[in-house]
Amino acid sequence: MGASTQSKLAWGFVAVVAILHFDFWLWTDKSLLFGFLPVGLGFQMLISILAGIAWALVIKYAWPGWIEKWAESGEDS
């Protein structure tokens, strides 16, 4: 798989997490996961964890490698 495809997939994963964040299907669900965690809150916590994973993938596959060199070669640096 090429670097460009991997980068697109990483960004695609971010988009999926962002869409899943709008969990309207759980809007009125008052059930408790593990007996204490409201299911809506539990799902949103899962979104936070998935966001961390998604950003790790973006850092790995879509990192702007050129930016450091560009910053260092500046007129005032």
Binding site: V14, V17, A18, H21, D23, P38, G40, L41, Q44, M45, I47, S48, A51, G52, A54, W55
Partner: peptide, 17 residues
């Protein structure tokens, strides 16, 4: 609990973006 989705999980996505 909706307050978590309003600002916390949203911020996890948008802040890092």
């Amino acid at each position: 609990i909706g307050v978590y989705g309003l600002l916390a999980s949203t911020s996890g996505i948008v802040h890092s973006l």
